[in-house]
Design a protein around this nucleic acid. Structure first.
Lengths: 72, 72
DNA sequence: TAAAAACACGTAGTTTGACTTCGTGGTATA
DNA sequence: TATACCACGAAGTCAAACTACGTGTTTTTA
């Protein structure tokens, strides 16, 4: 559950920065496939990975876990 | 670095709830040794583990990554 | 001040899952 | 119709998440 929300959050942040999965993967040193897995909530990054995502997306690590409203 | 801060944060939260490592371990279904490793920053929990810690400590997951001032 | 409780820490082991590569196919857009 | 972007499956590797055991030190409390 949490990793699904986390994945959506990461995908949203990435799009808001106008980055493709490939560009993000490159920045992080991850494979594109892994980015896709994370964004779809299939896999969750490690804590070290969270730090990398946060830096690349220019937010605090805690902000990766701040989710928006589900509906509106 | 991040896992050291995370460990200190978790230890602080645990103490503020007046829990021993053993009591926290029991709540989480973890070994006492693992709690010790996490609190000392030797190991980091998985994302699923973060969720469990947050619930047991009654904070949001993001709050586990909100750190205080280093000195004062 | 002694005993008990709480914790650090070393070693060593098992198992999960974080992360990879390769390959296919779908959808949007230019 | 070409190409950029992404979902998704299968299958593998390896680090690290997590365990058990044992000893010793610090902290608490009676």
């Amino acid at each position: 559950m949490l990793q699904k929300k986390l994945g959506r959050r990461i995908a949203d942040l990435r799009r808001s920065k106008k980055l493709t999965q490939e560009q993000l993967a490159e920045k992080l040193g991850y494979s594109v496939e892994f980015i896709s897995l994370v964004e779809r909530g299939v896999n969750a990054p490690s804590v070290a990975g969270l730090e990398k995502f946060a830096k690349a997306l220019k937010v605090e690590v805690g902000d990766l876990f701040v989710f928006e409203e589900k509906k509106r």
